[in-house]
Write a protein that binds this DNA or RNA. Structure first.
Length: 353
DNA sequence: CAATCGTGGCC
DNA sequence: TGGCCAAGATT
């Protein structure tokens, strides 16, 4: 197909999205922030986080100067928390090594923490008009269908072939606006027409050429991810309550919920009671409603247990470099707390206190 | 290089 | 209900 890019640019200008919060700007900071938040995360989920984040950190200098714990709190609920740490590190790198201005080349952008090949291309094309292709889930789906690419796109061999194909489709001699429309068009086509379930092939600019449409294989392309059985883990969580405050514990920087504040955990009930005693309790714990949380690669059964203290010292929020803190339930917003733990604690506020 | 890393929407 | 996966990067 010789006019792939021309058709896409024309389609995007007529039928694409033009009013998302991170569009209609060339500010690399705003574009970068949106691209990081949008990694493996849907637009509707990102929008409120993006607004909240910009209000607190309007530019890269403000973000670089913010405490990392504040960044984690702003990110809490979005998931993939390494993104938040890398976001903070990236802002500091831009300030310290690039004079506060994002570099304009794909190569330099991709050296920054949290920015890979696709995100670098998105930033470079949107902010600087660079001729570089993205390759996200949308593009993989569109290319697999239009060109009939077989094989799971997460497999290295298939992905490499797709990078080469995507590069070959880039427009030549395109203006900055055309470059932006092209990159946005790749995303818009995949997000609005060439969707996973029921693609709207009648409105697609490639309908007559698309291998999947012509052969009726929309359901088989792209090739599905190989199925894997997800293991189940089980953990006991301690809701240690003192007045209207609970004890939170900071999780290690890597691993699940890395760097967030969560409830103290143990591998079984006896170990949890022992932890409650270590915090000053009498060892008595009572069961709360269990909950299950499903991650991408495992399922977590959570057994919450309530223990009471009456020392009156828990009324204050204790911060600093400590890895434990008493936090009043009304102050949870200023802590990065995992979504299911947040739900548990929010439910506690209504039923028990 | 395959595994790891969250959460919520959709059907 | 549960399977699937979204504007992927990192190790």
């Amino acid at each position: 197909m010789s006019d792939f890019s021309a058709r896409l640019i024309a389609w995007q200008r007529q039928h694409g999205r033009h009013d998302l919060p991170w569009q209609n700007t060339r500010d690399p900071y705003r574009i970068w922030l949106s691209e990081i938040m949008l990694q493996q995360t849907q637009v509707s989920t990102v929008i409120p986080y993006y607004a909240k984040f910009l209000a607190r950190c309007p530019d890269v200098a403000a973000l670089a100067a913010a405490p990392v714990d504040d960044v984690m709190a702003l990110w809490a609920g979005l998931g993939y928390y390494t993104r938040a740490r890398n976001l903070h590190r990236c802002a500091q790198t831009v300030v310290e090594r690039h004079g506060g201005a994002f570099p304009a080349s794909v190569e330099e952008l991709a050296e920054l923490p949290g920015i890979g090949r696709s995100t670098a291309a998105a930033i470079a094309s949107f902010a600087f008009g660079a001729r570089a292709t993205i390759l996200d889930g949308n593009v993989k789906r569109v290319l697999a269908r239009v060109f009939g690419v077989e094989g799971f796109t997460g497999e290295k061999k298939v992905e490499n072939a797709m990078w080469t194909l995507a590069e070959s489709l880039l427009p030549l001699n395109a203006s900055d606006d055309e470059v932006s429309a092209y990159t946005q068009g790749l995303m818009d086509l995949g997000a609005t027409l060439c969707v996973r379930g029921k693609p709207d092939c009648l409105r697609c600019p490639y309908a007559v050429d698309c291998v999947a449409n012509v052969t009726g294989r929309q359901r088989e392309l792209p090739t599905a991810r190989p199925k894997k059985t997800v293991p189940t883990r089980r953990t006991w969580m301690l809701v240690l309550r003192d007045g209207n405050a609970v004890m939170l514990e900071k999780r290690p920087p890597s691993g699940i919920w890395g760097g967030l504040w969560s409830l103290p955990e143990a591998a079984d009930e006896a170990a949890l009671a022992e932890r409650a005693r270590a915090f000053g309790g009498d060892g008595a714990v009572s069961p709360l409603a269990p909950l299950t949380h499903v991650f991408t690669h495992f399922k977590l059964d959570i057994e919450p247990r309530l223990a009471e203290l009456d020392s009156k010292v828990g009324a204050l929020t204790v911060l600093g470099d400590a890895d434990t803190a008493w936090v009043t339930l009304s102050d949870l917003d200023s802590f990065g707390v995992p979504a299911p733990v947040r739900k548990l604690l929010d439910g506690l506020q209504g039923s028990l206190i």
